[in-house]
Amino acid sequence: MNSNCVSLRSLVDKWLAPTHSMPARVALVGRMFATHGRYVQMEGCTSTGPLTIIFFRHDDGSWCVFPPVPALPAMCGHVFAN
């Protein structure tokens, strides 16, 4: 795993800042259909009102608020070269 890995807990603390009076909760856990990547939907309350954020797990084990870039098909010329 990458040493620069960002944990889900640290992102929830950063974005939702949960407290005992305004806790954050897991609303949904699942996998994306196309890439099979994991995501977690978190809900919390802020001073301005309710907030829902979806966190995506990347291949290096880190969590981000944006989805990972799917692997695109690629051609390998050396496989067909004689």
Rank of each mutant, 00 (worst) to 15 (best):
P70Y: 11
A81F: 13
H78S: 10
M32G: 10
N82C: 15
S7N: 01
F66R: 08
P67Y: 11
V79G: 00
R57G: 10
P18N: 03
Q41W: 06
G44P: 05
C76P: 06
A34P: 06
G61F: 06
G44W: 12
C45D: 13
R38M: 12
C64E: 15
H58A: 02
F80Y: 06
F56W: 14
P73G: 12
N82E: 15
G61Y: 06
N4L: 13
T46C: 04
L8I: 01
E43A: 00
M22Q: 12
P67N: 14
F66K: 09
H58T: 03
N2F: 12
I53M: 02
M42C: 06
K14N: 14
H58K: 01
A34K: 02
F56C: 05
S3H: 14
L28I: 11
P73S: 10
R31M: 05
A17E: 07
A24H: 02
V40M: 12
V79E: 05
V65F: 01
Q41A: 12
V12M: 00
A17W: 01
V79H: 01
T35Y: 06
R38P: 11
P73W: 14
T35E: 12
V26Q: 01
H20D: 15
S10E: 11
D13Y: 04
P73C: 15
G30V: 11
G37P: 10
A81D: 07
V40Q: 04
L72D: 15
S47V: 11
F80T: 10
S47M: 05
P67M: 15
R9Q: 00
F66I: 05
T46M: 03
H36W: 07
L51E: 09
F33S: 01
P50E: 11
L28A: 11
L11N: 09
H58Q: 08
L11E: 09
D59P: 15
M22R: 14
V26H: 00
P68Q: 08
G77N: 06
A74E: 10
A27Y: 00
A17I: 02
Y39R: 01
M1L: 13
S10I: 04
D59T: 08
T19S: 13
P68I: 06
I53L: 02
L72S: 09
L28C: 08
G49K: 06
A27I: 04
E43H: 00
N2L: 13
A81S: 13
L11G: 04
L51P: 04
D59L: 07
Y39S: 01
Y39P: 03
V26M: 01
R9L: 00
D13T: 07
G30H: 13
P18F: 00
A27R: 04
D60G: 03
A17M: 08
S3N: 05
C76A: 13
E43F: 05
V12T: 01
M42E: 02
T46G: 03
P50Q: 12
F80N: 07
P50F: 10
F80I: 05
S62F: 09
A71L: 12
C76G: 08
I53V: 08
P23L: 06
F80E: 13
M22I: 05
A81N: 11
H20K: 14
S10H: 05
F33E: 08
G37M: 09
T35K: 01
C45M: 14
R57Y: 06
K14F: 15
D13L: 11
A27F: 04
K14S: 15
P73V: 09
S21H: 09
T46W: 00
S62H: 07
S10G: 05
S10M: 04
C64W: 15
R9K: 03
P70M: 05
T48H: 14
V69N: 07
M75N: 11
